[in-house]
Design a protein around this nucleic acid. Structure first.
Length: 272
DNA sequence: CGACTTTGACCTGCGC
DNA sequence: GCGCAGGTCAAAGTCG
């Protein structure tokens, strides 16, 4: 099986000429090249980010939605939103509005299609408290509560994608109030979690790099977490790697006329 | 023996 | 009020 790996460039680690042995012109050239590489990296990262969000965005066909239960209470207390989805049809049963909690996050996990377990390893410990077959998906939906901390309110629902049996869809609800090991979350992180609960449901302590989480807040700390998750995801998720390759390929084609040795930088990013 | 999973019953919200 | 569907409970079973 073909395996794609990715290595991140550490510009500082690139062999540099000894300044004492380098002419002024060579230093200028080296500096210019490093700046150009930095720019390219930023551009690539921007494309990757867009693809990353596309990859993790809500899919109407597979839409899992939060319980209608105690809807009125939740609407008053936590600022819910309703989504029209894709305008009815198969993704929107008549008379059953889809409800998405603002403090939920959704992750997709690529698994072996032959693997029947509904397990998403994310660094936390979960206790399964129910399983149900839903109407719009023949595969059962499993219900989990966080068992690391008795007071932790986080729940997650895990179900195979109706369209792609090799894809597990997990929906996290709430925020962890503890470290994956059971320790309390540092105050700064808790504050960040309050700013971006969807991300905090999985990060910054997400340990399984196959998971891609949907980040909804642009706080710099969360962005850093996102980058870290992307780095991990890129190393193992083939679908996401494909998105990366597409982004980089596009870059190469776009800039091919500018530089003849673009592949030099790209080849340093991806090795197969 | 404790923690976890399984699974049928029950609860609740919603549309008709 | 009734039926449907999703979510939760809790007793029994399983496992290390």
């Amino acid at each position: 099986m073909e395996k794609t790996s990715l290595q991140f460039i550490d510009l500082n680690s690139k062999p540099m000429h000894n300044p004492s042995e380098t002419s002024h012109d060579e230093l200028i050239q080296e500096l210019s090249r490093m700046k150009w590489e930095n720019k390219k990296l930023n551009e690539i990262l921007a494309v990757v980010c867009r693809n990353y969000h596309d990859f993790t965005k809500i899919d109407c066909v597979e839409e899992l939605y939060a319980s209608r239960k105690r809807k009125s209470d939740q609407l008053q207390s936590s600022g819910h939103i309703f989504r029209g989805c894709c305008g009815g049809g198969e993704c929107s049963p008549p008379g059953r509005p889809r409800e998405i909690k603002s403090n939920t996050s959704r992750v997709h996990v690529r698994i072996d299609p032959s693997d029947t377990s509904l397990v998403v390893k994310d660094g936390y410990q979960w206790r399964k408290y129910g399983q149900k077959v839903t109407r719009d998906n023949p595969s059962p939906r499993a219900y989990y509560k966080c068992s690391l901390s008795p007071s932790c309110p986080v729940k997650k629902k895990v179900q195979r994608s109706a369209g792609d049996p090799s894809l597990l869809v997990a929906i996290y609800e709430g925020q962890h109030n503890h470290h994956p090991s059971g320790a309390e979350i540092p105050a700064a992180t808790a504050a960040a979690a309050a700013e971006a609960p969807a991300a905090a449901a999985n990060s910054p302590y997400l340990s399984d790099p196959t998971i891609c989480s949907r980040i909804e807040n642009e706080e710099s700390e969360i962005q850093q977490v996102l980058v870290e998750q992307m780095a991990s995801s890129l190393t193992r998720n083939h679908s996401f790697t494909a998105a990366l390759v597409a982004a980089i390929t596009g870059r190469i084609l776009d800039d091919g006329s500018e530089e003849n040795d673009d592949s030099y930088s790209i080849s340093r990013v991806i090795s197969e």
